[in-house]
């Protein structure tokens, strides 16, 4: 390990300031008592946090996003587990091609997915339905779920499963009692990353969200393009607080870098 020079430490400080500045600013502005964007110079006020609760628009969108994230992450993980088992455990014709296919949504810009899903859902009459949203989100988050689940299965010592079989366990018992408990951390990590990715997604969702099924980021995006007011700041600040808590928990259990390495392409 080599020591960082003072210059490096200054660089690091500036870098962190750059990374945190916009988030810190949102959190500060959110406490203003004024009716426009300004720093809370005359004391912290919770006025705009209370205002969120009076705004069913955002509350509904928040719940919708929660349910959407829940449903799509759960579906994605539950189809990623068997698929990962196939990739990790079997050599079969087309294995590499199928794997590349499953990761390929990463190569498709979300805007392209958005326009495609819009035509598709309109065509089959699912535009504006919750299930339509769920399926499109599953496609977007599958690659992340698949990567984390796959890496936890590949890292598994297969001889533990052989040991269980030799001790008299049937295939299903081996899976339930040995394989699954051992990959649960990876599966849970994949679920959380999937959930967050779904919860945060805006570009694709802008197209497929209808007025009655609008996700929180889409509603916020639409709000921001019209006006930037303390209300949106307090809402954003609330999201930042929630994210911070989730992040600390994640970091505690997995290490943030390990989970997020899967997020790159």
């Amino acid at each position: 390990m080599r020591k960082n020079t003072p210059l490096a430490l200054v660089f690091n400080a500036l870098f962190l300031t750059f990374m945190l500045a916009p988030l810190v600013v949102i959190c500060l502005v959110a406490f203003t008592s004024k009716g426009y964007i300004s720093l809370p110079t005359d004391g912290f006020s919770l006025r705009w946090f209370r205002a969120i609760l009076d705004n069913p628009h955002f509350i509904d969108a928040f719940y919708l996003s929660l349910m959407l994230g829940f449903a799509s992450a759960t579906i994605a993980v539950s189809i990623a587990v068997p698929a990962s088992l196939a990739f990790a455990r079997y050599k079969f014709t087309g294995r590499a091609a199928i794997m590349a296919f499953f990761l390929s949504p990463l190569m498709v810009p979300h805007i392209v997915l958005g326009v495609s899903f819009l035509s598709f859902l309109t065509k089959i009459g699912w535009y504006g339905s919750f299930m339509g949203l769920v399926f499109t989100h599953v496609i977007i988050i599958m690659p992340y779920a698949l990567r984390l689940v796959l890496s936890s299965i590949t890292g598994l010592d297969q001889s533990a499963e052989s040991a269980a079989a030799s001790l008299g366990a049937s295939n299903w018992v081996v899976f339930r009692r040995v394989t699954l408990p051992m990959i649960i951390p990876g599966v849970a990590g994949g679920w959380v990353l999937s959930f967050i990715t779904s919860f945060d997604e805006v570009t694709m969702s802008v197209f497929v969200a209808s007025p009655s099924t609008t996700t929180l980021p889409v509603r916020m995006y639409e709000h921001i393009t019209e006006t930037i007011d303390p209300l949106i700041a307090s809402l954003s600040a609330s999201l930042i607080f929630i994210t911070m808590i989730v992040m600390l928990i994640l970091d505690r259990f997995y290490g943030l870098d390990k989970i997020l390495v899967g997020k790159g392409k």
């Binding site: 010592d157 001889s159 533990a160 052989s162 040991a163 269980a164 009692r177 040995v178 408990p181 051992m182």
Partner: peptide
């Protein structure tokens, strides 16, 4: 097994 293969 060489790797012990215990159920961790």
């Amino acid at each position: 097994f060489q790797s012990y293969a215990l159920f961790h």
